[in-house]
Structures are given as structure tokens and as C-alpha cells.
Nucleic acid binder design. Sequence first.
DNA 1: AACGCTTCTGGAAACGTTTTCAGAAACGAT
DNA 2: ATCGTTTCTGAAAACGTTTCCAGAAGCGTT
Lengths: 348, 348
Amino acid sequence: MEEIVSRSGVTIRDVARVAGVSLSSVSRALNGGKNVSARIARDVAAAASTLGYQPDFMARSLRTRSSGMVGCLVPDVSNPLNATIVRAAEACLRDAGYLLIIANTANDPAREREAAARLRGRRLDGMLVAPAGDGNARIWRDLVAAGTPIVILDRDPLEDEDDIPSPAVLVDHRAGAMAATRYLVALGHRRIALLTADADMRPSRERIAGFRAVFAEAGIDAAGAQLCIQASPMDFPQGGTLALLRGTPRPTAIIALGTRILAGVLRAARDLGLSVPRDLSVLSVGDTDLAAVHTPPITALRWSLEDVGRAAADLLLQRLHGVGGQAQARTLLPVELVLRESCAPPAA
Amino acid sequence: MEEIVSRSGVTIRDVARVAGVSLSSVSRALNGGKNVSARIARDVAAAASTLGYQPDFMARSLRTRSSGMVGCLVPDVSNPLNATIVRAAEACLRDAGYLLIIANTANDPAREREAAARLRGRRLDGMLVAPAGDGNARIWRDLVAAGTPIVILDRDPLEDEDDIPSPAVLVDHRAGAMAATRYLVALGHRRIALLTADADMRPSRERIAGFRAVFAEAGIDAAGAQLCIQASPMDFPQGGTLALLRGTPRPTAIIALGTRILAGVLRAARDLGLSVPRDLSVLSVGDTDLAAVHTPPITALRWSLEDVGRAAADLLLQRLHGVGGQAQARTLLPVELVLRESCAPPAA
DNA sequence: AACGCTTCTGGAAACGTTTTCAGAAACGAT
DNA sequence: ATCGTTTCTGAAAACGTTTCCAGAAGCGTT
């Protein structure tokens, strides 16, 4: 019960000596508990706690070929959206006894490659990854081929050599974007701008597709749909948005894809003296404090990031523990439109 | 150069066989490169790349007793402040060849204990930790005593058995709070409320101390200083803040310690129809998009979270690589007052 | 040619586990 | 008492590295 010596360096060998049994018996007693007599179990437990024995995971991993760790490759943990996903995943995985290793890829394929290589030799039991573009598809295929379970986070699922898609947690961005666009169209908007960075990632692609689909189905002149794609979200306040809002005809509504872009849009609107929603309707894709607390509060698309993390962890654990045999390979999470006060009919 | 077989399972033994040399030579050639002939170096390199050899870190760690991993214990990665710290630290550590393992503690000593125990057996090379309260001081002392370098993140530095304080990265919250409070006092405010969660953590404690010091030095009736401490930041909008703002006399200025609290305050002010800064001055401790983009933009205390993460990583690396011998044990980062438009003289 | 020195090499012993295997002990059934 | 099972045990072989050690090879000096 009481660790007399919590000083490390105590090995299973010491426990065996103190308990007066063999190495193998200690291992059995400590692990399975199967095929071990009551006496030995008791003595070993006593010896272990007296000595403050802590098993060495490195040695164990070497032998069992499983590290008890899963990697998480994500563009940027400091993005609140990713951070929430990571936190939820970490909670699930921790409860299952796994450790989470994170690596930022900055959406840069080279970085990502490097990270994958680094994680490669560590015998990670599995990975959660949001691949940056398609450039590294081969890497992931190799990893999958080598037997590492991979769960994709809101990106295009990979296919392995047998064309079986990898498990993935997807968010129904297309439906969300359609709901948002329909809402703006119903309010009377005809000139709607969609602002996004990285248009080639699945989320943006799906949203753009939904956006266009609604224009098509409503028979609106597609010219009204303005797509603004910028490499760096940081350029929006000074560059993109200002230019966009100064243009003629000015869009009457803006859909901002992501918190940082929303921040840029709001800043630009303020700089130009445009009042939301009187002069400009603003709709945020992704709900954060910023959207909820802003004056006026911003209508937003919301989905549960906790659910993304949790679902991903569950999918991975399912693979790791081998239950259900390929049971569920994909999770699609719903997107909800949260109506607030930042959208109104366009000024006549 | 070209990995013919990237399939894993290739061991140093295979490389040795292909290169026609011994195990030890391969190891030497691959690692040090010291005391190894040019011929062998060449052959080994060729064999390794032909076979697509990837060293097994588990085995290596077992032998060298160093895992190449550092742990990061933080209350909550999904908090943007922590997330930024984590990202910066990860970048530094990655460049130095280390992997970062994160564990959320939710500021809960029990969680923290559990996480520490979990990390214990993994031979982590070091840890970055923001301890949750003083409850677990013993754990950290033990870890330090066992030789694990630990760097503290903006919390009270621990002292080991020789009373040498552990390395720590601190933020000068006291000076920041003093600057903020002086600013409000200079504007004419006399009834200022400070809203915070967890008043016992170092950052809050320091801020409160600074806050009080300014009241004392200005000879203002200390009754004007209202401290509001709430367990959960989530209760502020509904509970604390509303009650506070409805009270008489109403504070003329509020200092909100933390993004979430700021959100609560702004929401409460809006609910009560109070205009910022006419009816109420608001000052945020911690600068985020929310503060910068809000209408009006919120005056805030800012410090560089990247610097915190970077400094912590540097301090740790310094320890790990043993350079400079205890060179620098503490880093104090400055806090800056960013003047925006959310503070004004109180209404007469 | 013998010697000492340095530089290089391969065998073997770690590192701390788990797991296989063969055999011992226990035990009920003949 | 003997046998067949089952349950338990300890020795030993892995797992894939690094590192110690002893000795071989090279080489310049006497």
C-alpha cells in the first residue's frame, strides 16, 4: 500500500526477489492474474507496493510491440476548433489507457511528412490525422499497409490498396452550408460572398459545393455568388475583405469560413463603418465565443467539436481493441444553424 | 536513397547482414559515425536505405534510458491560451527531435496525479507542467528527485529537497494588473470589480495582489475594490456578473480575468442594456480575437503566449542537453496594456 | 623484426519486460 | 498405487537496440 521507496529503478526482478518467486510469476501476477495461485498473487502485490514498483513501458512495448500511444496530426493545435477536438480525443483515449502525442503540421505537406516519419519508428498504436492536402497520400497508405490504424479527421478518407476507405469522422459541411445559404437567400440576399482560406480541403470544398448547389436550385444568377479564396486568413482584414466590401456592387451578405476570417470580416466592416446587419449580413461558419458574444451576436453554423474528437477516438479504439470487426468505418456529424442577429433582409 | 521496401520489420540485424558487417558496426555507423571506416559507413548507409530501415525507438529507449519524449501537463488544451503555449513548445521541441505528449488535467489534482503516474513509467525525458494547486507538490518533488527535468508554466516554482527552485516560465501578471488598475484609476474610476475564477493559482493571485497594491498606493477606499471569485467561469453570465452589475452601487469598471469571463461580462452587459464604455468600462486580462474584434474593441492586457511556450521549451532543452549548467532557472515575461476603446471616465 | 600506439571491428552483455515451454504439483478417477 | 488432467511454476528465449570489451589491423618508430 505505502510506497516506501518511490525512487525508480525498481524492476520486476527486484519484486521477484522480495516476493521469493520467479520473474515470470511476477509478470503473470501483475498482468493477467490468470494461472497464478492466491499466495503468489498476494506476495507479489505486497512486494510490488512495498518497493513502489512501476512497470517500464519501454521494455513492455519492446516486447509486446504496442506502445500504448496514439499520435494526433493536426494542422494547428492553437486553433480553438482543433484544440477542442484534441481535448475530447485525449479524454477518451486516456480513459482507455492511451497517451496522446500531438504534432502540428501547419497544413504543410513537408512538415507532415517529417512528422509521420518521426512517429513511424515509435510503434504508435494508431493515429488521428487531418491530412494536409493529397500530397502525402502515399505515406498514409504505407502506414495503413504497415498495419497502423488511422482515423481521418474531417478530411477525405484515404483508400488502402484494396480500396477500402479508412475510418473517418466527417462533418456534414455541405448540408450546413446549404442551410446557411438557403437562409440568406430566403431573407432576400442575391449577392452573397463566401470567404475562405484553403479551398482544397474537404470542409471548404463541401461548403462551397453546398453554397453553389443552393444557388443552382434557386435558379439565381450564379454571378451573385462570389467566392473569395485567400491563402492566409491573416490577409483578410487588410486585403481581401476590404477590397471586397469596397467593390461594386457590394455583396449584401458574407459567409465567413472560420473564426479568424470572421474576425477579419468584422474588423473590416467596422473600419468601413458598415453596420451589421443593416448594411451587411454576416454568417459565421463555426461557432465560437467571438460569434456568440459579438454585438450583434453572429448567426453561425455550429457542430460539436467534442463529438468529432470523441467519435474519432471511439473509431480508433474500436480498431485497436478489434471489437465488432470493421463495424463502423465512418461517422457523419450534423451541422446546425444557430440563428442570432447578424442577418437581415438586404437594404433595398 | 530510394526505399525499396518501406515495409517495416527491418531491423539493424538485417542491415548488418546485407552490408556484410556486424551489428555493432551498423549501430556505430548509423549513430555516431565515430570510429568507423569509410567503407563500412558507405555500405551500411546503402544497405539501410535499400531496406528502408527505420530504427526502433522503443528498443533504443530501453537501452539508452531516454525516450525522446517530453510530457506537457496543462489544465485544458482547448483553452486558446494554453493551446498557443503548447503549439509553440511543440515547435521548439520538435526541432530538437523530441515528441510532445499532452495530458489535460482540468485543474483537478486527482486527474493530475493520475496523469503523472501514467507518464511516470514512460521514461519521459522531461516535462512542462502547469500544476493544479499545491496538492500534488509531493509528486513533483518526487519526480524531480528521480531526475526528471521539469519546467513550470506560469505557476509557483516548486522547490526540491535542497530548496532549489525548479526552472519556471513566469508572466509578470502583477505588473500587468497594476498597469491596468492604474489606468482605470487615472480615468477616474473608484469602484472597480475584478472577476476571476480560481483565485489560488499564481496568475490570479499575482493579479489580485497588483490590483490591491494600486488601490493602496492611491489611497483609495479599498471597499471600492470588489473581488468576485467564482468557481466556474461558466456561471458568470447568468450568476455573478448579472448580480454584480445589478448591485448598488454598481461598479464603473470591470476587469475580466480570462477570455471566458470576458465573454460572460460582455453578455451580461448586453443583457442589461449597459453600453460599453459609457455605462461600464471593461478591461480584459488576456488578449484574444474576442477582445480585439468586439464592438467596441476591448482594452486588454497582453503577453506573448508563443514566448511562454518557447521559453519553456528552451529552458527544458537547456536542462536536457546539459549546457550551461543551471544557467538560467527562471524567465519572466512582460505584460503589455493594449489601449482600445472599452474604457472611459465613469459617468458622473 | 619487434614494439607501442591508434583506429577499427565483432562478440556478447546489457536494458526490463512478456511469453513459450517443459516440467512439477495438485487432484480426482480408476 | 497408477494414471490423466488440470493448474501452476520457473528457466530461458525472445524483442531491437547500444555499449563494453577484447582483440585485430594498420602504421610509424626504434
